[in-house]
């Protein structure tokens, strides 16, 4: 049974003051091996970690497996958390690595986090993009967007999911991914550009198949 914990709003972590102290307390106890406290941490973070996994892999069964793997790793490593960053940031970083490992195993866009964050050499967003009456406003449907997100290179996908779907700030993402804030901002821009191309139905020329 999932323990019932007061719902933490899916708002940026910084705003949830009361859940902070709930979390700090549960964290200390979980680090000492308290299983109930670990269950409480799960309840506090399961939505965001599961959603992260789901949007990264686009598939419910895989998202459940990855969420399980992330929390198992959390269980193994929780005693090593030293509070150098926010716990949520640390946990997300761990989950991102679990997702990247999974993508690597599947042979999709083999990348380390470093590679994922490397500005790609192919980036030339200088192509003429057509008339302004072809704007996307009001025309984006869920399936098309999910498909476009699925086709993003993993590094872009992570940034887009963390920022535009999960609502993290660039400074939080930078510390989750070990990159600069500027890098996070410019990668997000490139990710959105690629999505726009995909949604408008013209694949970039460097795309395979």
């Amino acid at each position: 049974m999932a323990p019932q914990v007061p719902d933490s709003p899916p708002a940026p972590i910084a705003s949830a003051v009361s859940s902070h102290s709930v979390e700090a307390d549960a964290l200390t106890r979980a680090q000492a091996g308290d299983h109930q406290a670990f269950a409480q941490l799960y309840s506090l973070h399961k939505r965001r970690i599961y959603s992260l996994c789901l949007r990264m892999v686009g598939n419910i069964a895989a998202a459940e497996d990855l969420t399980q793997e992330a929390f198992l790793q959390l269980h193994r490593k929780i005693a090593t958390f030293r509070g150098d960053s926010a716990f949520s940031t640390w946990l997300h970083r761990l989950a991102v690595n679990v997702v990247l490992m999974h993508l690597r195993r599947k042979g999709l866009q083999v990348i380390s986090l470093d590679e994922a964050m490397e500005p790609a050499a192919e980036e030339r967003p200088g192509r003429n993009f057509g008339a302004p009456d072809l704007t996307l406003a009001g025309t984006i449907d869920r399936l098309a967007l999910q498909r476009a997100i699925d086709n993003l290179p993993a590094g872009y996908r992570i940034i887009f999911v963390l920022h535009d779907i999960e609502g993290y700030e660039h400074n939080e993402i930078a510390s989750m991914l070990d990159c600069s804030i500027g890098n996070s901002k410019s990668q997000l821009h490139k990710a959105r550009l690629k999505l726009r191309d995909a949604l408008r139905g013209f694949p970039r020329k460097e795309e395979r198949r």
């Binding site: 599961y50 969420t67 996307l136 406003a137 967007l145 535009d164 959105r192 726009r196």
Partner: peptide
Amino acid sequence: LETIAEAARQLFPIVEPPDELW
């Protein structure tokens, strides 16, 4: 690009994993 970001926020809310997962 802002439209895409806004659409993503609306179309992909944070979701709850199934209870069995715990």
